[in-house]
Amino acid sequence: MPEPSAPRIRTAVLADDEALALVDRLTWSPLHAVMPEPQPPHGPFFGERQAPEDILVAELDERMVGYIRLAFPTELACNRHVRQIQGLAVLDDARGRGVGRALLRAAVEEARRLGARRITLRVLGHNTPARGLYESEGFVVEGVLPEEFLLDGKYVDDVFMGRPL
């Protein structure tokens, strides 16, 4: 049996809009999403808050299987040395193949390339798999907002994590 291929990571382009919107819909879960489940009709993925250059996509065998969004945490000039991961999604059938880790490492390298000194993210307290991945890549918990969200009838912590670059 042939070895599974490694994910290929690249910057998104406008033509990825439909595929990214599909990944977004297929990966929605109360495990990691605070926004309501997307309902049809589905709008475009790219918009005022996210442009193709903010997104790194992962492909396996030339099929898009995930993405990570890297953005500024605020619009303040005094905060421009920090980048924040504001979304990471991997299709179920691509899990366990190193896609999330490859996307995370690529985002760290991209933030470094852009001159950032720190990279941060927020993760729901009950999202144990994501927290484990982030910790294994050097992110540490820097703060917790207890019971910040009410999801599926349960109160969930919002965990702030970060690491230097």
Rank of each mutant, 00 (worst) to 15 (best):
Met1Arg: 09
Pro4Phe: 04
Pro4Ser: 09
Pro4Glu: 07
Ser5Pro: 12
Ser5Arg: 06
Ala6Ser: 02
Ala6Glu: 02
Pro7Thr: 07
Arg10Gln: 04
Thr11Gln: 06
Thr11Leu: 01
Val13Glu: 06
Val13Leu: 00
Asp16Lys: 11
Asp16Ala: 08
Glu18Lys: 13
Glu18Thr: 15
Ala19Gln: 11
Leu20Thr: 05
Leu20Met: 07
Ala21Phe: 08
Val23Asp: 15
Arg25Ile: 15
Arg25Met: 14
Thr27Leu: 08
Thr27Ala: 11
Trp28Leu: 09
Trp28Val: 11
Trp28Tyr: 13
Ser29Ile: 10
Leu31Ile: 04
Leu31Ala: 14
His32Gly: 09
Val34Ile: 08
Met35Asp: 04
Met35Ser: 09
Pro36His: 14
Pro36Ser: 11
Gln39Glu: 14
Pro40Phe: 14
Pro41Ile: 07
His42Ile: 15
His42Trp: 12
His42Ala: 14
His42Pro: 10
Arg49Ile: 07
Gln50Asp: 04
Ala51Asp: 10
Pro52His: 01
Pro52Ser: 01
Glu53Tyr: 09
Glu59Ile: 06
Leu60Thr: 13
Asp61Ala: 09
Asp61Asn: 10
Glu62Leu: 06
Glu62Gln: 12
Glu62Asn: 13
Met64Glu: 10
Val65Pro: 06
Val65Trp: 10
Tyr67Ser: 01
Tyr67Asn: 06
Arg69Val: 03
Leu70Asn: 11
Ala71Leu: 13
Ala71Cys: 11
Thr74Pro: 14
Thr74Asn: 11
Asn79Gly: 07
Val82Phe: 01
Val82Trp: 02
Arg83Tyr: 07
Ile85Gly: 01
Ile85Asn: 03
Ile85Met: 00
Leu88Tyr: 00
Leu88Pro: 05
Val90His: 08
Val90Ile: 09
Val90Trp: 04
Asp92Asn: 13
Asp92Tyr: 07
Ala94His: 08
Ala94Ile: 02
Arg95Lys: 13
Arg95Ser: 10
Gly96Ile: 12
Arg97Leu: 03
Gly100Gln: 03
Leu103Met: 00
Leu103Gln: 05
Leu103Gly: 00
Leu104Asn: 02
Arg105Val: 12
Ala106His: 04
Ala106Met: 03
Val108Met: 00
Glu109Val: 01
Glu110Ala: 04
Ala111Ser: 04
Arg113His: 06
Arg113Val: 01
Arg113Ala: 04
Ala116Met: 05
Ala116Gln: 06
Arg117Phe: 05
Arg117Pro: 04
Arg118Gly: 11
Arg118Asn: 13
Arg122Val: 14
Arg122Glu: 06
Leu124Asp: 04
Gly125Trp: 02
Gly125Thr: 04
His126Pro: 08
Asn127Gly: 12
Pro129Leu: 14
Pro129Ser: 12
Pro129Asn: 06
Arg131Ile: 02
Gly132Glu: 10
Gly132Arg: 05
Leu133Met: 07
Tyr134Thr: 10
Glu135Lys: 12
Glu135Ser: 15
Ser136Val: 15
Phe139Gly: 05
Phe139Arg: 02
Val141Glu: 10
Leu150Cys: 15
Asp152Thr: 14
Asp152Lys: 13
Gly153Arg: 03
Gly153Phe: 08
Lys154Gln: 11
Tyr155Asp: 12
Asp157Arg: 06
Asp158Ala: 07
Asp158Arg: 03
Val159Ile: 01
Phe160Val: 02
Phe160Lys: 03
Arg163Glu: 07
Pro164His: 11
Pro164Tyr: 09
